[in-house]
Simulated scan of single mutants.
Amino acid sequence: MEDWRVDIAAAIGRGTTDAQACHPLRCAPTLVKQRAMYGIPDVFRGIVWQKLSGADAMRQSHPSRYAQYCRMSASADGRIKRDLARTMPRNEFFSERGRGGQVLLFNVAHAYAAYDDEVGYSQGMNFLCAILLLHMRQEHAFWVLVCQLVTIMNHLACQLAVELFKLDRLILSCTPSLHQHFAEQGFDVTTFTSEWLLTLFAYSFPLNFTYRVWDVFFIKGFTYILQVAIAIIRQFEGDLLALSFEEIVFLLRDIPSRLHREPKLADAVSLLFLLLLP
């Protein structure tokens, strides 16, 4: 935290470390990216994500557009409402039916469906909206969705099979013995990792883990999501090599829960993230 404050203060030519004065939007983009690669403090995360995605500039260029989209009709409203109670139900912010975070979640998803009636509301969008709303106001979340996240989702809607094939090739390249073991067991790892990719690890992984992934994703793009998937699989390579088909299925399904239960394990996977950085 102190490094962020000192470096940002230096970038804007101020001799202060006050959090408000050291607003990341005032500092050099290169400095922000360098710092973000190694983790963004919670107090700055929402602001930096907006900066890195271009959402801040887009929002300022269209100051009343979000309110207009909120007032428009959208054919996806029924599907959005059905997903509200399924989105992070254990998180206090989204736990109260028809109130609090659920209202904001509906607003953002509805506004996007009105903004882009061709795409509307797609699988996994509720979890992306939820992660954003935990860090920023609803209008800001909408513009981050518009500027970066939905572009990725639209790509996956058409090219998920291609990205899963890339992941399979990465497994072959990085862990050939594990790739061979999967083949011998008749196991297709891509069927169990599509959920990871579609929600950018937002569906069931620990929030702090997901935040850390997104910090770098906003800089490196979707390629980094594939790299994180490989890092997770490599962390469990020793276990997976000794398992049968059914046991492999159970372990992969249990990985998010294990990261919840074992913070040290999540830390170990996070250390692998650093190896992915240039």
Rank of each mutant, 00 (worst) to 15 (best):
T223P: 01
L251W: 06
F205T: 00
G238L: 11
F245G: 07
I233V: 15
F209D: 01
V269H: 11
R234D: 13
Y203A: 12
F205H: 06
L198F: 00
N208M: 10
L276P: 02
L275G: 09
E247T: 07
Y203K: 13
L276S: 06
D267C: 11
L198M: 14
F218L: 11
F236P: 06
F250V: 13
R234M: 15
T210Q: 06
V228P: 06
F222P: 04
L226Y: 03
Q235F: 06
I225R: 02
Y211A: 04
A242F: 12
Q235L: 12
R234P: 04
S270I: 12
T199A: 14
F222H: 08
D254F: 12
E246H: 15
V228N: 06
S204W: 00
R253Y: 09
L259E: 07
N208K: 14
V228F: 05
A229T: 10
P256K: 09
A202L: 09
L226S: 03
L259M: 15
A268M: 13
V216A: 10
G221A: 07
A242W: 12
L200Q: 02
V228H: 00
E237G: 01
P206D: 05
Y224S: 05
L200A: 08
A202K: 03
G221H: 04
R261S: 14
F273Y: 10
F250L: 15
P256W: 02
